[in-house]
């Protein structure tokens, strides 16, 4: 797998010189002494540690209490594009390395824990690049009695406190597409979306509507967001609600889901949390069908979270933040490999 790090020698390739050095298969041996050393320098690791302490202080000052939940669990979030790593111990029972601590944290909320946060490791198989590592540090928090609006305010405060960004501008998903593509993501037909995506270089004739929207968001809208310090994108299509509630405003139904983009980099994803166990089951089944359609293994849809939701999840909003990306932005780095000691290729 290639690291796709920032191009250090553009001249080698700019002339199509196929014999240029470095163009041969770059098979880095696992015995290579370079891979014994961290990819981040020690100074960056110290600054990362200080940022971690400041992150904890932010939540402690707001009276969140820090919790710990299993990294290895029987339950798993079913999402077509989140691939958990399954682990089988000697007992033969299958467990999953958690793609986020969401399920277990919500079980604590149902038990009356109040507002909670956690800084832990999450795992997503095969995600590797300048902004991805299959094992990463996630900051996740839930605030009881908070709606999407209140949590968006808190996310903006957090970015200001830890990154020194300007207060986050709020753009609706619809507005963002209209501004950058002159296209309404809620009313445009699939054929129109496919045409725009194809002209932007997307090579997938079987792409579904959400795939087209994701592609356009990642390749056309995000570069526009990069021109701003901090933007909270909110009001996603209901098909992308994941674990968020949906609401109807005017002529559209949107998911009460929001994401923070700092200088164009996706940093946080939050929801006004879905509390209806039946609706969660319906969505998880739908995601499983999509997984099967893409020839991926189906995942168990039953979970202890469902049982807890049947007992009752308090009204709350929650958010997950990629800490490695936060550190990258705080330190002015251009890849998370500069702020992680041993990324997957050195792990």
């Amino acid at each position: 797998m290639s690291l796709s790090q920032p191009d250090s020698s553009p001249t080698d390739l700019s002339r199509g010189r196929s014999s240029a050095p470095g163009s041969d298969r770059e098979s880095v041996s696992h015995r290579s002494p370079e891979l014994a050393l961290p990819s981040a320098n020690v100074d960056n690791l110290k600054r990362r540690a200080a940022l971690l302490a400041r992150t904890r202080r932010f939540f402690e000052e707001r009276r969140y209490f820090e919790v710990e939940t299993p990294v290895l669990s029987r339950d798993v979030c079913v999402d077509v594009y989140l691939d958990p790593i399954a682990v089988e111990g000697a007992s033969g029972e299958r467990h999953f390395l958690q793609t986020s601590p969401e399920f277990a944290m919500k079980r604590l909320l149902a038990a009356g824990a109040g507002s909670i946060y956690q800084i832990t490791r999450a795992f997503r198989d095969r995600e590797f690049g300048p902004l991805h590592n299959p094992e990463f540090t996630i900051v996740e928090w839930y605030r009881v009695d908070a709606d999407a609006n209140l949590l968006m305010e808190e996310i903006s405060d957090l970015a200001q406190a830890l990154l020194g960004t300007a207060p986050a501008e709020r753009w609706s998903y619809r507005e963002a597409f209209r501004r950058t593509l002159d296209l309404d993501p809620f009313t445009a037909g699939n054929a129109q979306l496919a045409e725009v995506a194809q002209s932007a270089g997307f090579h997938d004739r079987e792409a579904e509507r959400d795939d087209l929207l994701d592609f356009l968001l990642a390749t056309r809208v995000q570069p526009e967001l990069a021109k701003h310090d901090a933007i909270l994108l909110h009001g996603y299509p209901p098909s992308q609600a994941a674990l968020a509630e949906v609401a109807t405003e005017g002529d559209v139904t949107t998911a009460l889901r929001f994401e923070l983009f700092v200088r164009g980099i996706e940093l946080c994803n939050g929801y006004q949390e879905l509390r209806d166990a039946n609706e969660l089951t319906r969505r998880q089944n739908e995601q499983n069908e999509k997984r099967i359609g893409q020839k991926k293994a189906s995942l168990p849809t039953d979970s202890r979270l469902l049982r807890a939701m049947e007992i009752g999840l308090p009204r709350c909003s929650g958010c997950a933040l990629g800490f490695d990306r936060l550190a990258m932005l705080a330190l002015g780095a251009t890849s998370i490999q500069e702020v992680v000691a041993f990324p997957a290729d050195r792990a």
């Binding site: 290639s2 199509g16 994701d214 990642a218 994941a242």
Partner: peptide, 15 residues
């Protein structure tokens, strides 16, 4: 000739 290749994955989207 592939002169650049970047892994992009929106949080909930496809790789």
């Amino acid at each position: 000739l592939m002169v650049e290749c970047n892994f992009v994955k929106p949080g909930k989207g496809q790789a």
